[in-house]
Amino acid sequence: MARRIGVFTGSRSEYGLLLPVLRAIDAHSALELVLIEGMGRDPADAPEFRAAATVPVKRDDESAASTPRAIGRAVLGVTDALERLRPDALVIYGDRFEAFAAMIAATQMRVPTAHIEGGDLTQGGTLDDVVRHAMTKLAHIHFTTNAEAAGRVRMMGEEPWRIHDVGFPPIDLIRTGDFAPPGRVVEELGLDEARPLVLFTLHPISTSPDKAGEEIAACLDALERARTDLGAQLVLTHPNGDLGSAAIVAALEGVAGRDGVTLRRSLGRWLYHGVLNWCGRVGRGVCVGNSSSGLKETPAFACPAVDIGPRQDGRLRGENVLHVPCEADAIFGAIRTSLTDEAFRARVAAAENPYGKGDAGPSIARVLAGLDLGDPGLVAKRTVFPER
């Protein structure tokens, strides 16, 4: 019988990020895919796989207590789903509170659990780092996105045989050209092909959500200068649903409708990657904000990126990324460099991508098919710190 591999997708973006893994598991003759959805997939992403279970994970309001309450409900929901579906293993991505809830439920039920993206660093005042490392210590199998992260997981006392450096899954889709073609990008967003493009996403910082309002104000000041001084058109997307997001959404809606400004709740993975391709390979553009995608996905498209503020501090980045504080002058200066400095754009075009070559999905499926998931030693973890 094929072994049943559960995959949990918690936030709106995770379905697109995990699509190569879902496809590889579904295509493997020894595996059966069991999809468990949290917040649900992004509406802009095609429903390629049907969810076997849906778990409520959404926060109720903007209070600090809303996140732990959502975690508690999600733990109960994932527990019920696992009890009913009985997967042989569960794959969980990332570092968000929804994923943390799934990890707690699965490991406490002794379900062999594989974690994607352990060992990364984001020391920028978010809770992502501590949640991600906690998930690493709970997980039984580790699929890291780069060699540096694999080394950190080993230093956390994880046994080497549990660690597999597979790369960043979305690179699989980029390598095969699975993204919106330039004509579709122009049509969908109403772009002027003669004007440069700024793609912008800003998320709140979970340890200082009260500062989200002033942070988005500084960003919008810089973006307005890019629009008026550089002739740029702007594609703005909503933040994630973390505490502080309401202030960012309100500010974005305040500038929507201006000439050359497009606001979308989300672009979806297919269109988003098409925009990055347009910015880097086709037209002239830049990805701006503090999303991890600005570091992990832009180098595969030779797309310049401006990383704002401390949210991604410590995360592996390529030579295409300019880091600036959340100050209007600094942000505008980096945008101007990205759009007008030919020497910098040439370096970006030649830079290597540090997040793998595009074989993460099949690599993960092969490991899951080859492991003895019934071995008691898989869930009975040992901590083995490397000798100094």
Rank of each mutant, 00 (worst) to 15 (best):
F8Y: 15
T9V: 15
Y15R: 06
A30P: 06
L31D: 00
A44K: 12
R50P: 00
A53N: 06
P56I: 05
P56Q: 06
P56R: 04
K58I: 05
A65R: 04
I71G: 00
D88Y: 06
V91W: 01
Y93A: 08
D95N: 14
A101Y: 04
M103K: 03
M103W: 00
I104E: 04
T107E: 09
H115E: 12
E117W: 09
G118V: 02
T126R: 03
D128I: 10
V130R: 13
V130T: 12
V131G: 07
R132K: 13
K137R: 15
A139V: 05
H140Y: 04
N146C: 13
A149H: 05
R152S: 06
R152I: 10
M155W: 07
D172S: 13
L173P: 01
G177R: 08
F179G: 00
G183P: 01
E187I: 12
E188I: 11
L189S: 05
L191C: 08
D192V: 08
E193V: 15
P196L: 15
L199C: 08
L199E: 03
F200N: 02
T201L: 09
S206T: 15
T207P: 00
P209V: 03
K211Q: 14
K211R: 14
I216N: 02
A217C: 04
A222F: 04
E224K: 06
Q233I: 06
L234H: 02
L243Q: 01
A246W: 01
G254F: 11
G254V: 13
A256G: 07
G260F: 09
G260M: 02
R265S: 13
Y272G: 02
H273A: 08
G274L: 07
N277G: 15
V282A: 10
V288S: 08
N290Q: 11
P299W: 05
A302I: 06
P304G: 10
V306A: 09
G309T: 01
G314M: 10
R315L: 11
E319Y: 15
V321Y: 03
L322W: 01
P325Q: 07
D329P: 01
F332L: 08
E342L: 15
F344H: 14
R345T: 05
R347H: 14
V348Y: 03
E352D: 15
E352S: 15
E352T: 15
E352P: 14
D359S: 10
G361I: 13
G361K: 07
G361P: 06
S363M: 12
I364F: 13
L371C: 06
L371R: 08
P376T: 10
K381M: 14
